[in-house]
Amino acid sequence: MQTVLYIRVSTTEQTSEHQLKQAQGAGFKVDEVVADVGVSGVTTVLAERPQGKRLFDMLRRGDTLVVRWVDRLGRNYADVTDTIREFMRRGVTIKTVINGLVFDGATADPMQAAVRDALIAFMAATAQAQAEATREAQKAGIAHAKDREAAYRGRKPSYSREQLEAVRDLLAQGASVSAIAKETGLSRQSIYRIQENPAESEAALARWAA
C-alpha cells in the first residue's frame, strides 16, 4: 500500500513544494508525488492531464491518494465527483490536507454512504463555484486595473497569486481570519482587505503584473 500526493499548480506563482510541505505538516507520510504544472483544473479533466492520468494506472486497492483539497483534482463538478467515485470503486482512499476529509468505499451502511456522497457532491460543487467566482473576479480586477493604470499603480500587494487563491479557498470553506493568517502567513488586515474587496485585490496584482 502506498500514499500518493497529487499536486496541480496552474500558474507560475504557485509551487509544488508548498503543497508538499502542507501535506507533510498535516502528518502525511508521502511515498510518491505526482504533479501537473501549468494545467487548468477547469478546462482539463484529471484523466487527460499528463500526470493526472498516471494516477489511474498506479493506484491500487488499499492505496491512499492525498490532495490539498478537492479542487486539485478539478474545478468541474462532474469531473471531480466521477473521479472520486471511480477511485473509491477501485478501493482507493482519498484524503484532503485541508479539513482532513476522507472518502472511501468501505462503508456498507446506506445512510453513511448517502452522507458521504452528499459531501462529495457539495465539495465538487464548491470547487466549481470557486473557479467561476475567481474567473469573474479576475475579469473585474483586470478591467479595474486597466482603468486606473494610467493614473498610478498604487502600493505593491503584500500577497502573491498563490496566497490570494489560498485565502479565497479558505474563506469559501468557512475558515476564520486567524486560521487563514496562520496558514498563509499574511496579516489579518491583508485578509480582511481581500475578503471585503476581491476585485481590488485582483486589480492590485494585475497592476503589478503579479
Rank of each mutant, 00 (worst) to 15 (best):
R148Q: 13
V97Q: 07
N76I: 06
R68L: 15
K21A: 10
I94M: 15
L5W: 04
G185H: 07
T126F: 05
T44E: 13
G141K: 00
R72F: 05
T93H: 08
D36I: 11
D57R: 09
E48S: 14
A114Y: 10
R68V: 12
L171M: 10
E200F: 08
S201C: 09
A47S: 15
T15Y: 00
T81E: 13
Q24K: 15
Q130T: 03
Y152C: 10
A121H: 05
V80N: 04
R54G: 02
A133Y: 07
S40A: 07
P198Q: 07
W69Y: 15
Q2L: 08
V37R: 13
V42R: 15
H18W: 11
Q128N: 06
L20T: 04
R85I: 04
L55W: 04
Q138D: 07
D104P: 10
Q14A: 11
R193W: 09
T96E: 02
E13N: 11
Y152D: 14
E183T: 11
R60A: 14
R207C: 09
E17W: 00
I194E: 04
P50W: 08
R116S: 07
D79R: 02
A175N: 09
G27I: 01
A179P: 06
L170V: 00
W69P: 01
I120K: 00
G52Y: 04
L164M: 11
Q24S: 04
V66D: 13
L101I: 08
K146D: 11
I191R: 02
R188G: 02
S187G: 14
T83S: 12
A179Q: 12
R161L: 09
T15S: 15
R90P: 01
R61D: 14
D63M: 04
A145I: 09
V115Q: 12
E162G: 03
E132L: 11
V167K: 00
M123Q: 14
G105M: 09
G74Y: 02
A23H: 08
I180P: 01
Q24V: 08
A210P: 00
A106K: 13
T134Q: 08
K182M: 03
H144I: 06
A35N: 12
L55M: 08
K29G: 12
W69I: 03
K146L: 12
W208V: 01
L205S: 03
E162P: 00
E32D: 10
D147L: 14
E48L: 11
L59H: 06
T3S: 12
G174N: 05
V67T: 12
R60V: 02
A78D: 13
M111H: 12
I142Q: 12
V9G: 04
G74W: 03
Y6W: 06
A124H: 04
R49K: 11
G27N: 10
I98C: 05
